[in-house]
Design a protein around this nucleic acid. Structure first.
Lengths: 183, 183
DNA sequence: TGGCCCATGTAATCTGTTACATGATTGT
DNA sequence: ACAATCATGTAACAGATTACATGGGCCA
């Protein structure tokens, strides 16, 4: 599933500018997808060229017109077709876990700080999720399913980190002391 | 954190061929990292060129020599340096969740099958994790921490899917019946 | 008046994936 | 005899990230 399909999915909920999409991705979608401007704008241009979306241009701020994109009937049909054949790849790419795996090669103080940072990210994502829940309700069952699953997973991660961080850092400090006894 | 660093991490545990690394990544690392041959072999060649790893070549099967790679002292030093500065990016990239988000645009039967498939993947990863636990214990605390966190997260996902799938599929079927009543 | 938010877009670069090519050994 | 596993590598391609370029409106 490429960015084009992702944009099509997002536009199937409601019209948006490229800028809007970026921020929407940061809210509801941030748990399982990321995309920057450098991907979104070329994607919207491709989709418009293929007639899967169209747009109304107004003269917003800045030198170029503000373009509000909408999905077209062809776009909806094409989206359905893609959703019917896509395969459900799911992958986690975590430098955080790789760092934790290598924790004994890192300063214990930094390991502790890394866990703090990760927990802050998790909290931020949970806040974004709850914020999107407070917005006008969407009558499509997938939204709630995905949102709740995201919340479940994020909370599980938070609980794990909270209850296991001490044991990890203690073990690292004990090992360090064994190698360079301070007394 | 690029593939080079990932290979360096893996080789810090024990020497391996490129082929070994691929399979090791599929075991313990599969929850948070993936890498194919097309990435691993060029990576090992680069690392060897920079003196961060070396290898002993034997004439294994196939036309080319079998190369067992080891991390060098320079490699260990470089790895520590990279671990000391890397930032803990963590991202999930899930077509599965995107498909679930769009569930109302997909045949309910397929939605059900997609969840089955995802649960099978989760079970396979849990099995791989448990298999790696049964192997000779590693005296580095990060390994247990990461393995247990992976297990926790995978189990949370499995439980969520098991308990919420019915509600999603029922809602989809109800909606479909509302639009095209069969009686 | 300085910085942030809105808003769009391009170009260079980086990185990884896929497909291909090769071929011996081991198990059924 | 056939398939699977072991084992290494290259080349073409696809995809995304980063940096750059532009500039009005709003708030402190």
């Amino acid at each position: 599933m490429d960015i084009d399909t992702l944009c099509l999915c997002a536009l199937s909920f409601e019209p948006a500018t490229g800028y809007d999409l970026k921020r929407r991705f940061e809210k509801v979608y941030s748990y399982f997808y990321v995309a920057g401007f450098g991907s979104i704008y070329p994607s919207l241009a491709r989709l418009a060229k293929d007639g899967l979306v169209d747009f109304v241009a107004t003269h917003g701020p800045g030198p170029r017109p503000r373009k509000e994109y909408r999905i077209t009937p062809q776009g909806t049909a094409e989206l359905r077709k893609r959703l019917a054949t896509a395969n459900p790849v799911h992958r986690v790419h975590s430098d955080f876990l790789l760092l934790m795996l290598m924790a004994d090669q890192i300063d214990p103080v930094r390991v502790d700080a890394l866990i703090d940072e990760r927990m802050a990210q998790i909290r931020a994502q949970l806040d974004a999720l709850n914020a999107s829940r407070a917005e006008k309700p969407v009558a499509r069952p997938g939204v709630e399913f995905v949102r709740d699953m995201g919340e479940t997973m994020l909370q599980a991660a938070a609980v794990y980190l909270k209850t296991h961080r001490k044991a990890l850092v203690s073990a690292l400090e004990a090992e360090r002391d064994r190698q360079t006894p301070s007394s």
